[in-house]
Simulated scan of single mutants.
Amino acid sequence: MQDKSMNASLKMLLDIAEQMILEKGCRATTLQDIADRGGLTKGAIYHYVKSKDELFGLILEAGMETTNQRFFESVARAPEGREGLAGPLNTLSERLGHVAGTDNAANLIFIYLLSQNDKPAVAAILNRYYEAAVQTSKKWIEVGQQHGAIPEHVDAEKAARMFAIFKNGLQVQHIVSPDGGEIGDRDIFQFMMNALGGGRD
């Protein structure tokens, strides 16, 4: 999956799939539905993926890439040192809050794929997604350390794995406890700031 290049046709497929998931849900959305709405044959979709689950996995990866781009745009605008941590963390907090929402296709996909984790192909998709999230977060932390915004003593690998667990927990929280209290962007921001040593003198 990770070697698929994002051309206009694939992006259109992902956009259509996201719209249909929000309209019908993951289970009810079929590759034939997506093909019909896009004016394509089902075979055209199979040029990119082998299954609906793989297409859904690509949507998760595309969302992660969008977050990565926004993070680095924020880093480019941030000042050096600890004060430079706020902008990029704010960007990530907003994205995490958005991804964890019940009106977000990526969150619906994540929960749907989790429910099928007993299938080896789906387990592989989830594992790839998790490991990509960890490596992306690790890169963000290392960039923060290089810019003096995150203390050197922070273990980037461990912190990245903790953030992946936190993100997955946010995604599941809305399903298992919809009335369990809102965790807002500001709460996420403060949690990450404290975890990365930005809230300490």
Rank of each mutant, 00 (worst) to 15 (best):
A78T: 04
E80R: 12
E83T: 13
E83V: 12
L85Y: 09
G87T: 08
G87M: 14
L89S: 06
L89G: 13
N90H: 03
T91Y: 03
T91D: 14
L92V: 04
R95M: 00
L96N: 03
L96G: 03
G97F: 01
H98M: 05
H98N: 00
G101S: 13
G101T: 02
T102N: 09
T102F: 02
T102D: 07
T102H: 08
T102R: 12
D103V: 03
D103M: 05
N104P: 05
N104C: 05
A105R: 01
A105L: 02
A106D: 01
L108F: 12
I109S: 02
I109G: 01
I109V: 02
F110G: 07
I111W: 04
Y112V: 08
Y112F: 13
L114Y: 11
S115N: 07
N117H: 15
K119H: 07
K119S: 14
P120K: 02
P120N: 05
P120W: 06
V122G: 13
A123Y: 04
A124G: 15
A124E: 15
I125A: 15
L126E: 11
N127P: 10
Y130Q: 08
Y130I: 11
Y130A: 15
E131W: 13
E131M: 12
E131Q: 14
E131V: 15
A132H: 11
A133K: 08
A133E: 08
A133Q: 15
A133N: 10
V134S: 11
Q135Y: 11
Q135N: 14
Q135C: 15
T136K: 13
T136G: 08
K138I: 06
K139G: 10
K139R: 15
K139C: 14
W140I: 09
W140D: 12
I141D: 11
E142V: 09
E142M: 11
V143K: 10
V143N: 14
G144I: 05
G144R: 00
Q145D: 02
H147K: 13
H147Q: 15
G148E: 05
G148P: 06
G148F: 10
A149D: 06
I150C: 05
I150K: 09
I150P: 12
I150D: 05
I150N: 01
P151Q: 08
P151T: 03
E152Q: 14
H153T: 10
V154F: 07
D155C: 06
A156Q: 04
A156L: 08
A156S: 03
E157K: 01
K158N: 10
K158S: 05
K158Y: 10
K158E: 10
A159E: 14
